[in-house]
Design a protein around this nucleic acid. Structure first.
Length: 281
DNA sequence: AGTGCGGCCTGTCCGC
DNA sequence: TGCGGACAGGCCGCAC
């Protein structure tokens, strides 16, 4: 399907959370015995001395903030972002790398965490400070499930914003984890037109949007959980949430909500956007 | 301050 | 059939 390339691999928040749940049980409590960096050129350079930094440290837990994975070690945190095309898998040290397998973190008991990222939009950074105060994380808005993410909060923030609500929703300073796909899906569920200026949306409709965002993301995470790919094998299953999509990538197809009309595709805020002109106002 | 755009990359798709 | 070019996509940093 046109315009569908890469959807399956795109790590939106549900896939990042699914990844976290997939790798954490293999790694938590184990100590690093080595690190292999084959390619340092990610969005920012991987630290030259990554191996020395991590050697001997115990991984306490794998957490998540927005689309960042936080590998919390005894002396600091490894921040990992999967960018557009990144993925993590569990393997054993010495397994021959495939193309774009850039980094291996080797742990006790012959457990290896491998980062693959063909487009290298991902990130792997070390910080010994509070990771939540890191430059890249400090300015982020609430998680979608945070109580702070409410209709009142959105309406207040939106009051000075003329941008389309879709851009507003995708702004990480407003709320995190809503990427291009789920912005389209959430707005469709809430019946809000993606091009509508953010400040021209009533409080009650923002209340509906908050619920829609949470339901869409929860459903995708749950679905990811039930068909959880095996993180100890080489390749993930393609597009586990693809069947869930109501509008994204369905240009011209009938709307599954009103049963009539056809899904429109338009560039809004420099990004492909999908919506039902009949359901969404 | 809010807004929009350039740049980073490569796999995929389209047209010739 | 083969090849080149356009494009997508998250997100930072910059310019206005």
């Amino acid at each position: 399907m046109a315009g569908f390339g890469g959807v399956a691999d795109m790590p939106e928040l549900p896939e990042v959370e699914t990844t976290r749940r997939g790798v954490a049980p293999h790694l938590e409590g184990r100590c690093v015995t080595g690190a292999v960096v084959r390619e340092r050129r990610l969005r920012q350079p991987v630290p030259v001395d990554l191996a020395q930094i991590l050697l001997g440290q115990r991984l306490l837990q794998v957490a998540r903030r927005a689309k960042y994975l936080l590998f919390e070690f005894s002396q600091g945190t490894l921040l990992v972002h999967l960018g557009m095309s990144g993925s993590l898998r569990i393997t054993t040290p010495g397994t021959p790398p495939k193309p774009h397998d850039h980094i291996d973190l080797e742990f006790d008991d012959k457990v290896c965490l491998r980062l693959r990222d063909p487009r290298r939009f991902g990130l792997m950074l070390w910080t010994s400070e509070d990771p939540l105060r890191h430059r890249l994380l400090a300015g982020l808005g609430p998680e979608p499930w945070d109580q702070r993410f409410s209709a009142e909060y959105l309406a207040e923030l939106a009051s000075a914003r003329r941008v389309p609500v879709k851009n507003f929703l995708m702004d990480g300073a407003v709320v995190v984890g809503v990427g291009n796909i789920y912005a389209s899906e959430s707005l469709h569920r809430a019946g809000i037109h993606p091009a509508r200026p953010a400040r021209r949306i009533a409080l009650l409709r923002y209340a509906g949007l908050v619920v829609a965002v949470r339901e869409i993301l929860e459903s995708a995470i749950g679905f990811g959980g039930t068909t959880l790919r095996d993180f100890t094998h080489n390749d993930g299953q393609p597009g586990y949430f693809r069947n869930e999509l109501q509008v994204y990538g369905r240009a011209g197809a009938p709307c599954l909500r009103c049963g009539t009309g056809a899904i429109s595709q338009r560039v809004i805020g420099q990004r492909a956007s999908y919506f039902c002109p009949r359901c969404q106002r």
